[in-house]
């Protein structure tokens, strides 16, 4: 009897030991994760208000004065306002085109049976796993041949394509989760195919569309490789390319570089912060369906 009691005591002590270990491990783990994620960007943010001398001699201290010199200068060094405008035009247009066109395709694939449906779906899905860096030369040639080299339209076309697989998967699984009788009622009422899609399906699937749009916007806003390959003038270059202006001979100051980094990253961070619940819940819906 007695030995059994001690054994039990010992066991509960051991469990408590494990509990303390796991909970302190989990707190430490989370602290490290937060530190590695936000320290670099917070450091860049504070440094963007410091002078070059302060950055070089006391890199961890807070700025002595909060001046916006770096931000003002960044606009002088590079055509940042031009790049912002380009990025907005390109990201918005490619988002609308991508979500609209791929939305139409996903809808008919999810809802109707037709010849070659499986072949089309599988072929389109392959694009998700294609390393797009392997296609830089032919895509460059194609864009060049159709006369869209160094144009916004060229980048819009390529970005619309780059987001094709993600949007297809998201919207396909979203349409599958919508009950079929909604649009059947519409058809009975005599509404046409296109009208049903626009007036019935799109509003019902709005959360799916919103998530696809956020992801597509971030993709177009952040893309760098094709932006440098397919454009060469400041008339058509986008925000991620702007940072290369800050390491040349005439514009070497750290303050402006750091200010530019903040201005390049901030729109993505704000957009994600505002829309994250939406994005997270839709990703769940997509992944549950596989």
């Amino acid at each position: 009897m007695r030995s059994l009691a001690t054994k039990k005591n010992y066991k509960s002590e051991k469990i408590r030991g494990i509990r303390i270990f796991t909970s302190s491990f989990s707190i430490l783990f989370q602290l490290i994760i937060v530190a590695i994620s936000i320290l670099p960007i917070v450091w860049i943010f504070f440094s963007s208000f410091k002078t070059n001398g302060e950055i070089l001699n006391s890199s961890l201290s807070l700025p002595k004065h909060w001046n916006f010199y770096g931000y003002i200068n960044a606009f002088k060094i590079s055509p940042l306002h031009k790049f912002y405008a380009n990025s907005i035009i390109i990201a918005v247009t490619s988002t609308i085109l991508n979500v609209f066109f791929v939305g139409m395709a996903s809808y008919v694939i999810a809802r109707f049976n037709f010849k070659f449906k499986k072949v089309i779906l599988i072929t389109l899905s392959l694009s998700l796993f294609l390393p797009m860096t392997s296609l830089i030369h032919p895509v460059y040639m194609t864009i060049n041949k159709i006369g869209l080299y160094d144009t916004k339209a060229g980048l819009i076309l390529v970005y619309t394509a780059l987001g094709l697989p993600t949007t297809l998967f998201l919207l396909n699984s979203y349409f599958l989760s919508i009950p079929k009788d909604i649009e059947e009622a519409a058809y009975i009422d005599g509404a046409g195919f296109f009208r049903t899609f626009i007036q019935i399906i799109v509003p019902v699937a709005r959360p799916g569309f919103a998530t696809a749009a956020v992801l597509q916007f971030l993709l177009s806003w952040n893309e760098f490789l094709y932006a440098i390959v397919l454009t060469n003038s400041k008339e058509n270059r986008t925000i991620p390319v702007a940072l290369s202006y800050f390491t040349s001979q005439f514009s070497f100051n750290y303050t402006s570089l750091f200010a530019a980094i903040v201005m390049v990253s901030l729109p993505s961070i704000i957009l994600f912060a505002l829309m994250q619940e939406q994005v997270v819940s839709s990703l769940t819906a997509g992944s549950v369906k596989g």
Binding site: N52, L56, F246, T247, S248, F252, N253, L257
Partner: peptide, 14 residues
């Protein structure tokens, strides 16, 4: 390093 590193090291007397 790029030009920025060279220039800043010189300007801060490093």
């Amino acid at each position: 390093g790029k030009y920025e590193n060279g220039a800043n090291n010189f300007l801060s007397e490093k």
